[in-house]
Design a protein around this nucleic acid. Structure first.
Lengths: 364, 364
DNA sequence: TCATGAATCCGAAACGTTTCGGAAATCATT
DNA sequence: AATGATTTCCGAAACGTTTCGGATTCATGA
């Protein structure tokens, strides 16, 4: 006959008592109903192995007693944490704040809808990011990751693949992509936009692309190159610039190209987003060039950046693939991957739509 | 003599096996060292009750075998999840994206430094937010919350207090504030800025404040009122405007006040942040009024918004309290609160500093 | 009446950790 | 050498859930 625990002095024990006071457990339910814990658990999970009438009895009691399953306990036995994670490397620059907010907010919302929690982890640029991933998987705190902006070769992807940790990537690295992803057809972006200009007789075509080394930039660049080749146009490296996709980049590069004396000047521009296009516009205006009479401009439109492609001085011909439509699929794909769905079911390659507007005209 | 489990057919069991393959547990360590699980656990936690030499032996082995504690299991027994949460109600407007990013990123960083995980939860405006908090605490997924932007009376605070759930608030509601908070002296902001203008002889003093109903706005307003009363100036409700603290608000309200014919026009402005002040500047310029000769402007500076108080056309006289210095204390306070620190140790009222620059001059 | 099988149920083990209460070993003091 | 105190250790229970393997009931058909 051991003495009953007192829960008096030690903080820990006291806390335990306090916790018990404030929550209903499966055991509570079971003895309230005269059922075994097993059956109550199965009833709650709508298992086939329990009579319909008892299920309803259990559900009603659960409702009344305010039962919520303790996720931690569930995690421990299932091995799945129910939590997914997004790792951000360093605080992004101010220009990307709006995008950042969209990503975080929408991902959180979508995962919540699927009944998972969304962990945000900021890793300092200083310490190694892979270490952050490592700790997260080792502690069994998360069971999957969301990656964005894959590089051509992406160490995060290599790491997670090797570790056999589920993840979904927004985009694909330049590898064989044997992992879940949601990507748009970036090759088609480069190819289609360039072809449009070529079909109007342009042969001096500049391409203001995203940062070098990012997979989407590379794919668009390849599309650009193939379109040129198909049009019998020789590639001129001077016509291509990589950079952060902001208005200033578009403006500065366009200004440089439109005034240069060491080579031909472009008559057409392919811009990797509408902010760049807006910068090109401004440069044209500064030099008294009008769009599309003097210069044609086409761009890709993610339907998210503050520059709307249809409300520029001259409405823009674009490929469009709304970024806002990617979050829900991303969440769905990762969830599926965690639940062991086959690879084919966790990959989406979203086609882009071409919208022709007034910003292109035959080359003069 | 029961048969050994086979781990063959059923997915669950197989998975369990798979997990065991990839992780080192306390038990592994214990039998590798010939110690009890108890002692290994205590050694890892640097408990007094274990010999120094064994501690080191354990630590070494843990290092070698790559042991990482399973946080889920720890949670289950301690009742603490090690996770804190920030709930966002709806996607914020674009103007607040930068602020949002600062908040999320820095909080995540600071909590990571303190060894906690940071859960971000977006609650749709549509469904009730308190429900989101409810679910998070009921599922035992988080053991504390970060709140920002408290209203005068804030239902979230009432709810969490009643539920006895730890939280830290950035700011204080207009209540007796019996909870952890980090706040700046907003009363002093209103009082000091207004007094500065009064001491220069101004008597027509406008106050462009933050949105009505927010606690910080209310406190600043009270400071403004008291300063007026102390200066023997009668309060004129027409001089006060509440709104979203963006440049346009400052401009529009200033323009309205500076041209109105149905009452006196202000000779001095108190702005609740530098963006508002910047808008007031623009309005003054438009009407050919110069600062500080014709109009004096003072503002509060959070040292975060894109408008720097010292690089406006006329450098601004301000109260300053850098928002960037609040995240680390916030994280520390919440952690302390969760660990049961007494209330006094979890409250910080940060004083504001007054910096006098060229934007104020004696009233004409 | 007895085997067959479907429909429901339950006991017990397991997940990996912390902690309580006591036991064993070591040391200092008579 | 016996006593008591201190240091170091360990077994077992607990956290709340899921799941394995078997048990019980009850109708069905032989």
């Amino acid at each position: 006959m051991t003495a009953a625990p007192l829960f008096l002095e030690k903080g820990g024990a006291f806390l335990t008592l306090k916790n018990r006071r404030t929550m209903t457990t499966l055991k509570d339910l079971s003895q309230h109903l005269g059922l075994s814990v097993t059956q109550v658990s199965r009833a709650m999970n709508d298992h086939w192995d329990v009579k319909q009438s008892t299920k309803e009895r259990v559900w009603k009691a659960a409702e009344e007693l305010g039962y919520k399953p303790n996720l931690t306990a569930r995690k421990l036995v299932t091995g799945k944490s129910g939590t997914v994670c997004f790792v951000q490397e360093g605080i992004p620059p101010k220009e990307e704040a709006w995008l950042f907010m969209q990503i975080i907010s929408n991902l959180s919302r979508e995962f919540t809808r699927l009944g998972r929690q969304f962990l945000f982890h900021l890793a300092d640029e200083s310490d190694d990011v892979l270490g952050a991933y490592e700790n997260l998987v080792r502690g069994k705190t998360v069971d999957g990751f969301v990656l964005i902006n894959p590089k051509n070769q992406d160490p995060r992807i290599d790491f997670l693949l090797k570790r056999d940790v589920p993840f979904v990537c927004h985009g694909r690295a330049m590898d064989d992509a044997l992992y879940p992803y949601y990507d748009i057809d970036n090759y088609a972006v480069g190819y289609n936009l360039t072809s449009l200009l070529i079909s109007q007789g342009h042969r001096e075509i500049a391409f203001l692309n995203g940062r070098e080394g990012l997979a989407f930039s590379t794919r668009r660049h390849r599309g650009y190159l193939d379109a040129l080749e198909e049009g019998g146009i020789e590639f001129d490296a001077g016509f291509v610039a990589h950079g952060q996709m902001v208005e200033a980049f578009g403006h500065d590069e366009a200004a440089r190209l439109l005034t240069r004396t060491d080579g031909p000047r472009p008559t057409g521009f392919v811009a990797s987003n509408t902010r760049i296009a807006s910068g090109i516009f401004r440069a044209c205006t500064e030099f008294g060039l009008s769009v599309p009479q003097d210069v044609s401009i086409v761009a890709h439109d993610d339907a998210l950046s503050e520059v709307r492609s249809d409300s520029l001085p001259t409405p823009l011909t674009v490929t469009v693939a709304p970024l806002s439509e990617s979050w829900a699929p991303m969440a769905r794909l990762l969830t599926a991957a965690i639940d062991g769905a086959p690879l084919e079911k966790t990959q989406i390659l979203q086609p882009v739509e071409v919208i022709e507007r007034a910003s292109i005209a035959p080359a003069s």
